[in-house]
Design a protein around this nucleic acid. Structure first.
Lengths: 189, 189
DNA sequence: AGAAAGATACCGCGCGGTAGGTATGTTTAG
DNA sequence: CTAAACATACCTACCGCGCGGTATCTTTCT
């Protein structure tokens, strides 16, 4: 039964998306170590060779995934900022909300797994640093204050705590922290 | 030239220590991915077989390293607490100082590399969770307050920020955060 | 003598990556 | 209009390497 396997519809865009999404999904529930070229390829219904056609190396795949995630975060945060009537702390609030309840890099997202390799991997680290640096510069008129910085750091810490506990749902304690941090961005100091 | 290779002085304690220290050193400047059984063994001047005599598996080695680090942190924090005259926020202050300037798991320690795998590795995660949980319970009379929790979270966030920037020295900005967090533990609320 | 400490040699596996083929699409010459 | 010519997308099969781990032997300590 020599059924021909070369019958795939050619939709490079869709395949690329599928590869990215599958990589994210695998990173999410098998850990970043589970993100092997093979696994991603078969999950996307493609072979390894096909994957390497879109991404020249595993590194390229990871960076692509990372960039994609950052892009989503960007749109999410921009939307939140635009909807925020109060100038001061706009970005910080958007950031905190993104971390705690965001669809892009909140809890229970591929971000959790990926951000770990960010620490290890210099190229990825650069991408992240550039991103946060650019955002801070862009919002320096509304968010450049020591107390807001601490709020953002605490959000990072909360996120880290959440990740290390490995819970799937957010604890009441963390929700309380969330509320408290938001309040802190509104308080006059 | 049949030079005899079995000339090692037998000091198992020292070898064990060397293995742990070398593993830490490698994790520190080659990343956690560089911590291979072979690399650790040769760095400690031992063969793989020798290593496996002390640690039955790689996992055991990692856990041993982790436990060792935690023990150092413990003594460091205990000392700091004992030297602190003011009851409220004792542990939080000790924790913050440990994170920012501590010898055990401050910046530029093997902790940076290791803490990343803590997130990934369930057994290690348990060890960490148990540790912090026990400490918090132990100091609940002095450090169980929402504002102190936020201070600790911010310290974690600062540590994360430091690690992701990959700097070897602490920036002036982070030093300012350090001071600010310490001050926050003393403030009456 | 016997156990602990360590050395040597070897294995299987799964990984990232490559080589070369075959379909499907797009452009262009007659 | 059509068919050759080329480019893109994807597949199959394979490779080398380095890893964690094991089996077995030799030396040293008590």
């Amino acid at each position: 039964m020599p059924e021909n396997r070369y019958t795939r519809a050619k939709q490079p865009e869709q395949v690329r998306r599928a590869l990215l999404d599958c990589a994210a999904a695998i990173a999410m529930d098998h850990g970043v170590a589970g993100v092997t070229v093979q696994a991603v390829a078969v999950a996307a219904g493609v072979t390894k060779g096909g994957l390497f056609h879109h991404f020249g190396s595993k590194q390229a795949l990871i960076e692509g995934l990372f960039a994609d995630l950052l892009a989503r975060v960007d749109t999410e945060i921009d939307a939140a900022i635009e909807a925020d009537p109060k100038p001061r702390g706009r970005f910080t609030r958007a950031y905190v909300n993104a971390v705690f309840t965001g669809k892009a890099f909140g809890f229970a997202t591929p971000w959790a797994a990926l951000s770990m390799v960010v620490v290890t991997d210099p190229p990825l680290r650069r991408l992240w640093n550039d991103w946060i640096k650019a955002r801070l510069k862009r919002h320096r008129t509304t968010d450049d204050a020591p107390d807001l910085q601490i709020v953002r750091l605490a959000a990072d810490g909360a996120w880290l705590s959440y990740v290390t506990t490995g819970q799937t749902r957010m604890s009441a304690e963390l929700r309380a922290v969330h509320a408290r941090l938001l309040a802190q961005t509104n308080r006059r100091r």
